[in-house]
Design a protein around this nucleic acid. Structure first.
Lengths: 355, 355
DNA sequence: ATAATTTACACAAACGATTGTGAAATATTA
DNA sequence: TAATATTTCACAATCGTTTGTGTAAATTAT
């Protein structure tokens, strides 16, 4: 017996993917029924649901998210913008985001700004055009102008910053307590008996480096040590830069007995320079870094470092996003999630086996 | 003077994003004109084009890619599936892919299989539902059943494998010449005067490890050295595993004078064990690894390793994808792109300053 | 001056799913 | 038994673009 013709038109050609219309025709029901059966709507009888599900499986039906998103006005896509995907930190954060997102049925579109505002702007446009449900971003180093983020807000798309922020605090963000991290590392060095602790400071227009430096100062103050400007070095956190800074410090009339670097590569550079000059670590100079990169456990001695909780940061960023969509319409309260850093003490700073 | 009403209905509410219909109403032209003006169609006069462009800019018009993709049947989304995003290799490949893709106007959706076939299957479904224009994948370790990839082909979606392949060679893929890499590293060790070269071999059901081992055997043969099975160790490539394998080798009545490991972490484990036992590297035992991870340059001595051309691999994978869409419909010739590995010789294997 | 082009634009039907509204059929209650 | 509630489903509009077809007007060729 021929299936009763309903509102759908023509039979499906062989090659094209099967759509709800195909299912409807095959079963002699309307597309409404198909759609509601697939989304488990209450107004569809259990028998019909079974039949639809079975046929869908049989014909290998793949829902078209695009069409659904278009109709509903909201997609299951999540935009993520990072300066670059390589390197432990951002890769791990993205890992955390993707894992959490996919568990919640979201797909993540990854964009790299390459530390370039122009790219960042284009990334935003692309993501908005893709009708993403939200955007998670860690701003590029060169970002001084924030209008492109304003545009995101205008489009009503939830925006969450992680790690690197834009100025102003009326934003949603998840960050590490970098200040606490700087404090922990520096205090640890002081506890080891060091009294002239130097600091490799990163670019101060970035919140993270500014805060790490502030934590360093906090620790000195808690020990009633007046900061010595000559011990605070401008450093771009590269290996070479670290070696150079270390060399400069050694030339001081009164060299330091410890270094807290705002990054791990730089402290490795310092370590290599010290070893080449026969200066013992940690006996003569103790070292501590920031980021807890893999290299900290390969260097000899292993490097003390502050862990940034990369993966938790990713998870937290996604969770904050979901909270934003849930709070849609309600009073817009900006939220900041602050993660606590963790100090990993290793040989490079252990002068005495104690706390 | 009131704008002439065309086919469009109601004025746009304040909050909602501006669409082509809004532009059309504002300018008193049809949506056709807007669409064609924006895509620089020849049938639109220069004056009209100008006006449309200007208004679009002014009203901050954002094209809706979803709608366009739905209509055209093809999106500007590219799906990428990797076992995990962390770690140098995949992060770099993804970097290469994303850079190339975004240059060509594609956005990449990143998925992690977590080395789990079930996840991999779900990833495929998700990507197909998202109507991606193509899928780039490096299969998980646990993938033995390949039907989900067959489904991709059925949907007419271009599929490109990179690094890790499925069996059978009627697939599009870009891989490293792992065999050549294994050969280069081993030959180098032999050239350094080593005669009992051991090998840390990875899981042999993976093409990459199988080929590296084969390259190792090739090199031995080219030196007329019969392979000694007791020198070929099963190794899961972890740090610990590397140390264990090294320890086992040292217990041999006739220990090796060199090790070529199919992975870098394992060779680092070996190095650490050797140092702890006071065995000199490379004088007593020379070492070479595979992947050229960052740690190779942090270890002491620095580790000789084979570079995998991660970024080129990403670029090549994307290029292969574009070639596939270009060749749409024409005779389907599967293509394999093979990248040449590069050996980086460092202190861990340099017994004599030569070659 | 008339015919043949070219230019410039509008109409309307798709793409594939969702959903408010309404209407049968069936079950429940008075 | 009649009235009311519940279950089950179809109609048709809609999301924002794209595009084949149609048709005036302007330009060029004959």
């Amino acid at each position: 017996m021929a299936a009763r013709r309903t509102s759908t038109k023509e039979p499906n050609a062989a090659g094209s993917p099967v759509s709800m219309a195909d299912l409807a025709r095959e079963l002699g029901v309307s597309m409404t029924t198909i759609s509601r059966a697939l989304s488990d709507h209450h107004s569809i009888g259990p028998a019909t649901k079974q039949a639809v599900l079975r046929l869908a499986k049989k014909l290998n039906y793949q829902p078209n998210h695009l069409a659904a998103a278009l109709r509903k006005g909201k997609s299951k896509l999540l935009g993520v913008i990072v300066p670059y995907i390589e390197g432990r930190f951002f890769a791990s954060v993205v890992h955390g985001i993707e894992t959490a997102a996919s568990k919640a049925g979201f797909s993540v579109i990854i964009c790299q700004s390459g530390e370039d505002v122009a790219h960042e702007r284009k990334n935003i446009e692309t993501l908005l055009s893709a009708q993403v449900a939200g955007i998670l971003v860690s701003v590029s180093l060169t970002t001084q102008d924030f209008r492109h983020f304003e545009k995101v807000r205008k489009h009503g798309v939830p925006l969450v910053f992680f790690d690197r922020l834009v100025e102003g605090d009326n934003v949603n963000a998840v960050v590490l307590n970098d200040r606490e991290g700087g404090y922990l590392a520096t205090r640890h060095l002081l506890e080891q008996g060091c009294r002239r602790v130097a600091h490799f400071a990163g670019m101060q227009h970035l919140n993270i480096y500014k805060n790490r430096r502030q934590g360093y100062l906090d620790a000195l103050q808690s020990y009633d040590i007046a900061p010595d400007e000559s011990l605070i070095m401008d450093c771009n956190m590269s290996l070479e830069s670290g070696a150079n800074c270390m060399a400069a410090l050694l030339d001081l009339p009164n060299p330091p007995d410890a270094v807290f670097s705002a990054g791990d590569s730089a402290v490795l550079g310092a370590l290599q320079l010290l070893k080449s000059r026969g200066i013992r670590v940690p006996q003569d100079i103790a070292l501590a870094g920031f980021s807890n990169e893999a290299l900290t456990q390969v260097a000899e001695p292993m490097l003390t470092s502050v862990d940034q909780r990369c993966e938790e940061m990713g998870q937290a960023a996604f969770r904050l996003f979901t909270e934003l969509v849930a709070a849609e319409g309600t009073a817009f309260s900006q939220r900041q999630v602050v993660l606590q850093p963790q100090l990993f003490v290793r040989a490079s700073s252990l002068r005495q086996d104690t706390v």
